[in-house]
Nucleic acid binder design. Structure first.
Lengths: 117, 117
DNA sequence: CTCATTACTTTCTTTTTGGATACTATAGTA
DNA sequence: TACTATAGTATCCAAAAAGAAAGTAATGAG
């Protein structure tokens, strides 16, 4: 959680004002965000499946990042009233429109970024 | 500085292995990186000018982020042997090829991201 | 001999992020 | 009654990122 009293907080605000790209980075910048979008896109719609794909992510982080993606309206979260519980994540239309851009960025990276620069 | 012994570190490594986009985000994800690329592109080539554009950045952070951008070959750093010292930053060709992609990402953000989602 | 200028570096502290681990809820099954 | 499965929460601690403030270096001007 952010302290609204921190310099950190006010800096982010001022930065967003002079560089609107910052908001985009805020949404995509979480450590696991893009990987999650990718795996959900690949058809891994459930919490457990995503954890199997990324065995090193903790439940806490998976939960937190999915929640942020949901708040930023990049993923839908559909709950089925079953037991044991079933929840399915899917990409929103907003996220769909993002995919081609991410692909361009990915291609740029392929061409120009080596694993450890 | 990163501890290579930390879970943090190994997670980054494993994540990069399954999601190559992660390397791109590593390069662009620093708090001030994209704003810096933008202002350098706009013609603010010197340390002091960049600080004037972003009065809230500390010298430490400005220095660190410029250094990373230089290491990732997105900015050139040209030192003039003068006194007082003069150093000029400029975008590399690699960074030039990135600009159109960032512009697409920016346009996506314009359309889909509100300031605080 | 002090001051100004520029581009930083260093040290210390605060803030934020991330990891480890244990715990919760609910219904069905053995 | 205990055990399974699923999708998480909660708490506490370690690691990393970022900020504050002071210091460094070299030269020319006064």
């Amino acid at each position: 959680m952010r302290k609204t009293s921190s310099t950190n907080f006010s800096n982010e605000t001022e930065l967003a004002a002079i560089c609107p790209m910052h908001n985009v980075m805020r949404v995509l910048g979480g450590r696991w965000k893009i990987a999650l979008l990718y795996f959900i896109h690949q058809g891994h719609h459930r919490f457990g499946l995503l954890q199997k794909k990324m065995p090193f992510i903790t439940t806490k982080m998976l939960s937190a990042q999915l929640k942020e993606l949901e708040q930023d309206e990049l993923v839908n979260r559909k709950i089925y009233a079953e037991m044991p519980p079933r929840v399915e994540y899917s990409l929103t239309e907003k996220a769909q429109t993002l995919l081609p851009v991410l692909e361009d960025l990915y291609n740029w990276g392929e061409q120009y970024i080596t694993a450890q620069a």
